[in-house]
Computed example of a mutant assay.
Amino acid sequence: MSASFTEKCWEIFNRSIADYHVHDNVDQPMNNPHEEGTIEATLYHKNWIDTVQWHFEDIIRDPQIDPVSALALKRRIDASNQDRTDMVEEIDTWFREKYADVEVADDAKINTESPAWAIDRFSILALKIYHMREEVERTDVSPEHHAKVSAKLAVLEEQHTDLSTAIEELLEDFAAGKKYMKVYRQMKMYNDPALNPVLYKQSK
Rank of each mutant, 00 (worst) to 15 (best):
K182I: 10
M1R: 13
D192T: 05
S114P: 09
P115F: 00
V88H: 12
R76G: 09
V183M: 14
I77M: 11
N47V: 08
V22A: 12
K98G: 07
Q186T: 12
Y44G: 03
D120C: 01
Y20K: 04
F95M: 12
M30K: 00
E90N: 12
P29C: 01
I65A: 13
Q82K: 02
F174L: 10
L195S: 07
I49F: 02
R133Q: 15
H23S: 11
S114G: 10
E168F: 05
K178R: 13
V68Q: 14
Y130V: 08
T38C: 04
M181D: 12
W48E: 02
Y20M: 02
R121F: 01
S80R: 04
R96C: 09
Y44Q: 01
D107I: 00
D27K: 02
R84E: 03
E7W: 00
E36I: 04
Q28E: 06
Y200A: 05
D27Q: 01
D106R: 01
H160P: 01
Q28F: 02
H55F: 08
A3Q: 14
F174W: 01
E89C: 08
I119D: 10
S123D: 02
T93K: 14
N31S: 04
Q53K: 14
S80V: 05
E7M: 06
Y184G: 15
M187N: 07
H160Y: 09
I12M: 11
I91S: 14
S2T: 13
R76H: 04
P197L: 12
D66M: 12
P29T: 05
E57M: 09
I17W: 11
G37I: 07
V149W: 03
E134R: 04
I110T: 07
W94Q: 11
I59Q: 06
S2R: 08
Y200L: 10
Q53P: 04
V68D: 15
D106Y: 03
D92T: 15
R76Y: 04
M30Y: 01
F56V: 05
T38Q: 00
Q53H: 10
K179W: 02
E11S: 13
S203V: 15
A176V: 03
S69K: 15
E35W: 02
A166G: 09
Q82C: 00
M87P: 07
P143H: 07
T161F: 12
M132P: 00
H21E: 10
K128F: 07
D101Q: 13
D66V: 08
Q53W: 05
E7H: 03
S16K: 08
L127Q: 06
E158A: 13
D58N: 08
E144Y: 10
L171G: 08
N14D: 07
R185Q: 12
A18W: 01
H21R: 07
V26L: 05
S150A: 13
E168L: 11
R61Q: 01
